Amino acid sequence: MGKGGSVDITQRRDELEGAPVETVLRWAWDTFGDQAAATSSFQSQSVPLLHLISQHVPDLPILFLDTGFHFPETLEFRDQLIEEFGLNVRSLEPRLGHDGFREKYGKLHQRDPNMCCYLNKVEPLEDAMEEYDAWVSGIRRDQTENRAGTPVLQREDDGTLKVCPMVEWTSRDVWTYIDEHDLPKHPLLEEGYLSIGCAPCTQAPGEGDGERGGRWSGSEKTECGLHTDFGEDSENDTEATNSESDET
């Protein structure tokens, strides 16, 4: 039975709620093996989970959404962590590839950032997850209002079991772990970037902004769609957006 259908979500959720991250990771690997995969954006807040994966489940595949719009520093940081931690990373690109996407859609992020995220992040991850039954994510409840009620285990619409081993951690927990283990930090952190996505849609947050305050600044957008349901609506608008491409 695929997609973790034999797992008793309610029972396991109660058992794993509040458990150490390594316990949840070990359970996911023992239960699903190579049918489990993690995702990571390779920013500073990602490092504790990546470090714990390297220590406890080093063979766990880690999916990186290579949108073609990342800061060069993010790609360099990804490569640094792969080498230092010995991570098993698989990079995902949009269906059209980077050049094909730019040629067809141009600066889509300026016209329709939801659609841009859908084509560059949601869709490639959906394609990749057809090969996996469990998705290990590093999201935390304290990051945004949308994530405040995230359980440690939840069933996605496609049947995939989403596993969130760090869901109870706070930002303070993240930085305490980084400091205690003397782990690397994203090079843009020194310039004030607390949460880092694609370069065109990310800036350093202003004073008093939350951790993700610099993401999609100037708009009401707070999520890329990986952890929300707007992807389906955006997909329905693809045909209209296709005709609106401009210069790269």
Rank of each mutant, 00 (worst) to 15 (best):
residue 2 G to P: 14
residue 2 G to I: 11
residue 3 K to N: 06
residue 7 V to Q: 00
residue 7 V to S: 01
residue 7 V to H: 07
residue 10 T to W: 11
residue 11 Q to Y: 14
residue 15 E to P: 08
residue 17 E to P: 06
residue 23 T to Q: 02
residue 25 L to A: 04
residue 26 R to N: 11
residue 27 W to Q: 00
residue 31 T to C: 13
residue 34 D to W: 11
residue 36 A to N: 11
residue 37 A to R: 08
residue 37 A to T: 12
residue 38 A to Y: 00
residue 40 S to L: 02
residue 43 Q to T: 10
residue 44 S to G: 07
residue 46 S to M: 04
residue 47 V to E: 07
residue 47 V to H: 00
residue 53 I to E: 00
residue 54 S to I: 00
residue 54 S to D: 03
residue 55 Q to A: 06
residue 58 P to V: 11
residue 62 I to Q: 02
residue 62 I to M: 01
residue 64 F to I: 02
residue 71 F to H: 09
residue 72 P to Q: 10
residue 73 E to M: 13
residue 74 T to S: 12
residue 74 T to P: 08
residue 78 R to S: 01
residue 78 R to D: 03
residue 83 E to G: 04
residue 86 G to H: 10
residue 87 L to H: 11
residue 88 N to F: 10
residue 89 V to A: 09
residue 91 S to M: 07
residue 91 S to R: 15
residue 92 L to E: 05
residue 93 E to Q: 14
residue 93 E to R: 13
residue 94 P to F: 04
residue 94 P to C: 12
residue 103 E to S: 11
residue 104 K to W: 05
residue 108 L to I: 10
residue 112 D to E: 09
residue 114 N to E: 15
residue 117 C to Q: 03
residue 118 Y to A: 09
residue 119 L to V: 11
residue 120 N to C: 10
residue 121 K to P: 03
residue 124 P to W: 03
residue 124 P to Q: 08
residue 125 L to K: 02
residue 127 D to S: 09
residue 127 D to C: 04
residue 128 A to W: 00
residue 128 A to G: 09
residue 128 A to P: 09
residue 129 M to I: 07
residue 130 E to A: 14
residue 134 A to T: 08
residue 136 V to W: 00
residue 139 I to M: 04
residue 141 R to Y: 11
residue 147 R to I: 07
residue 148 A to K: 15
residue 148 A to E: 15
residue 151 P to S: 03
residue 157 D to S: 15
residue 160 T to D: 00
residue 161 L to G: 05
residue 161 L to C: 01
residue 163 V to R: 00
residue 165 P to A: 01
residue 167 V to A: 03
residue 171 S to F: 06
residue 172 R to S: 13
residue 173 D to H: 02
residue 173 D to I: 08
residue 175 W to H: 11
residue 175 W to I: 02
residue 176 T to R: 12
residue 180 E to W: 02
residue 181 H to S: 03
residue 183 L to D: 08
residue 184 P to E: 05
residue 185 K to A: 13
residue 186 H to L: 10
residue 187 P to F: 13
residue 188 L to D: 05
residue 189 L to T: 12
residue 189 L to W: 09
residue 190 E to H: 10
residue 193 Y to C: 06
residue 197 G to Y: 00
residue 202 T to H: 07
residue 202 T to E: 08
residue 202 T to S: 15
residue 202 T to I: 03
residue 202 T to G: 05
residue 204 A to E: 10
residue 207 E to D: 11
residue 207 E to S: 09
residue 210 G to W: 09
residue 211 E to R: 06
residue 214 G to M: 07
residue 217 S to R: 14
residue 217 S to P: 08
residue 221 K to V: 09
residue 221 K to C: 10
residue 224 C to Y: 01
residue 226 L to R: 00
residue 228 T to I: 03
residue 228 T to E: 02
residue 229 D to I: 05
residue 230 F to I: 12
residue 231 G to A: 06
residue 232 E to P: 09
residue 235 E to Y: 15
residue 236 N to E: 15
residue 237 D to T: 14
residue 242 N to W: 12
residue 243 S to V: 13
residue 245 S to N: 14
